[in-house]
Amino acid sequence: MTEKKRFLITEEPISTEDVIQKVIRRECGAVTTFMGTVREFTQGKQTIRLEYHAYKSMAEKMLAEIDKEVSNKWPGVTTAITHRVGTLEITETAVVIAVSSPHRKAAYEANEYIIERIKQIVPIWKKEYWEDGTTWVGDQLEKVPYPEGAPQKGAHHG
């Protein structure tokens, strides 16, 4: 059953092909895929590995929420999103987003929109393990204020 869920948080390595298969339909003429992978160097600083944590039930719910936003903005697209949690090594895949659409433009645009929204509203956290310590990303220096205590509502791409 888990294989069929279009919005999934998993501790297992992600099969990109499995995510793609969830959006393949006879109506679609385009499928775009985005893979987020673990980068070794960030501004010259070396990452040893990453650890992702999630509020799993709510995270899957927010992924479905993003799908709703996408359907409103690009009617006719189908999306599937899998995000991995746990410990990931350099080059491993953290997230796969697949979008199918009758025509390519919507598939490209919707896919980019989804990753931006994941970074805004989906309760998943990344902990960087450096050579000399650890950092919870998104939290250092308190650069991201949420004065209202809640994230902004959808559609920042206009």
Binding site: G36, Y52, A54, Y55, M58, A59, H83, A94, V95, I115, I118, K119, Q120, I121, V122, P123, I124, W125, K126, W136, V137, G138, D139, E142, K143, V144, Y146, E148, G149, A150, P151
Partner: peptide
């Protein structure tokens, strides 16, 4: 998601969510 003015009810589950960093 809710804001700071929301009132709690008996039995609620409240999650405190630091700035997220998925992807």
């Amino acid at each position: 998601y809710t804001d700071d003015s929301a009132l709690l009810s008996e039995g609620d589950t409240v999650a405190l969510i630091p700035p997220v960093s998925g992807g």
